[in-house]
Computed example of a mutant assay.
Amino acid sequence: MSHLVLLGDATFDNGAYTAGGPAVISQVRKRIPVGWRATLVAVDGATIADIGAQLARLPADAERLFLSVGGNDLLQQADILGAPVTTSAEAFDLLGAAARRFEAAYRDMLRPCLQIDRHMAICTVYSGNFPEPTLQRLAEIALAPFNDAIIRIGVEHGLTILDLRLICSAPADYANPIEPSAIGGGKIAEAIVSAAKNDKTRLRSARIIG
């Protein structure tokens, strides 16, 4: 029997945004094989700093961890997009410095997770669904170095990486600019269960699912 546990933020804890539709955890439970279990530990609004507290609430028989976190950390740094600069090099430097801080925090957060499941799955931060085309393009560009850090860390540790930019790629996948709808949640759930079913060998080899 496998016990899947979802850690992180509203990417998984999206029940408040589905307008009565099924949340990610409900859709995961409908898709997993008989005898498997799935538990939601993720909390809407959580940041990288909150994952330690979530690990303290893990079920004793947790076997397979899925983690989606970082989006709220990036929202807290959104003012970078409006920071005054005189050259494009200064803008890149600001973004690069923020990405380096993010990567360091993500690495520190991930270390105790790997002690529980050294072949866990992690998620990139999706691009969202902003109504203004310019803001959407800026979000996609600004997210790139942070998602690069997540992917690089995942590859280094041989983890499964769910690229949510590819999984949640249509407007209907979002209930608002930054939260997954029931439709998007269904796609996320499908990716989670597919990763869990196909990860039988637990080989130390990274793979990206999108």
Rank of each mutant, 00 (worst) to 15 (best):
A121F: 02
A121I: 05
I122E: 00
C123M: 08
C123L: 12
C123K: 04
T124Q: 07
G128M: 07
N129F: 07
F130I: 12
P131S: 11
T134R: 13
T134S: 14
T134C: 12
L135F: 10
L135G: 15
R137T: 09
A139W: 03
A139P: 00
E140L: 08
E140M: 15
E140V: 10
A142I: 07
A142S: 14
P145K: 08
F146I: 04
N147C: 09
D148T: 12
D148G: 14
I150F: 03
I151Y: 05
R152N: 13
I153L: 15
V155R: 05
E156H: 15
H157T: 08
G158Y: 03
T160I: 10
D163L: 08
D163G: 13
D163Y: 01
R165Q: 07
R165G: 02
C168Y: 02
C168I: 12
S169Q: 13
P171D: 10
D173V: 11
Y174D: 00
Y174Q: 01
A175Q: 12
A175G: 12
N176K: 06
I178S: 03
P180D: 01
S181E: 01
A182P: 14
A182S: 12
I183Y: 03
G184K: 00
G186T: 06
K187C: 09
K187V: 05
I188G: 04
A189N: 07
A191S: 08
S194H: 13
A195N: 07
A196F: 02
K197Q: 10
K197G: 14
N198D: 11
N198T: 07
D199S: 14
K200I: 15
K200W: 13
T201I: 11
T201E: 12
R202V: 10
L203N: 11
S205P: 03
S205K: 14
S205A: 15
S205D: 13
S205E: 15
